[in-house]
């Protein structure tokens, strides 16, 4: 026998289910009056430094159906690469946003500032990106992915460099559709399956 390790094991996840909205964004779900406003309504406040951008997209299940019930959370640095809570971070950038697929169309919209590059532990840099966490009925553990931008230099990003099938890199890169406008679609399965992360 050996000594017992005293580390604990993480609590298992369970699906957020079809009614995640009433817990996380109740006003969006029509459950008014419990909180003054939903948490994470805005990634930024007026006056945030940097380029204000809008990202729209849909999340498609394995049948090609745009899911109507998904909820998303985003987390990102400000325009100079600082996260909320770090010294010198832009006080107008919350960095965190909660948003949901539209109940009729399945489309989501995120309005925020384009984040700056962020440092790595090894002394390098990560290309500008937004971390995304996705929950819904049928998703048993929240899915992590990232939104990069096609008009940024992504060539030295350590995470993108780890993707062996280079054609899959595109699944993490938002396409520019206009001034300050990007499109980012997410595919859970199939030939265009988005790269999901474990980090």
């Amino acid at each position: 026998m050996v000594q017992k390790l005293d580390t604990l094991v993480e609590t298992p996840s369970q699906t957020a289910g079809p009614y995640v909205h009433i817990g996380c964004i109740p006003s969006f779900a029509g459950l008014e009056g419990v909180y003054p406003e939903d948490l994470g309504l805005r990634a930024i406040e007026d006056g945030a430094e940097g380029e204000v951008i809008t990202i729209t997209g849909s999340i498609y299940d394995g049948t090609g159906w745009a899911m109507r019930d998904a909820m998303f959370e985003s987390w990102q640095a400000d325009a100079s690469g600082r996260f909320a809570g770090q010294q010198g971070a832009d006080p107008k950038v919350n960095g965190f946003c909660r948003f949901a697929a539209d109940k009729d169309t399945g489309e989501f919209t995120l309005t925020t500032v384009k984040p700056g590059a962020t440092p790595t532990r090894a002394g390098g840099q990560q290309a500008p990106h937004i971390a995304l966490w996705i929950v819904a009925r049928g998703i048993n553990i929240g899915l992590q992915t990232r939104i990069y931008f096609e008009d940024e230099d992504n060539s030295a990003d350590p995470l993108l460099a780890r993707i062996e099938q280079r054609n899959r890199v595109e699944t993490l890169v938002a396409k520019k559709t206009g001034e300050g406008q990007y499109r980012f679609d997410i595919y859970l399965q199939g030939a265009q399956e988005t790269v999901f992360l474990d980090l």
Partner: peptide, 18 residues
Amino acid sequence: SVPRSPNQPLLSMESTLS
């Protein structure tokens, strides 16, 4: 969960500031 679970393996890496 059948149409909503990724088929491809997750990309594992050490965590970053994000």
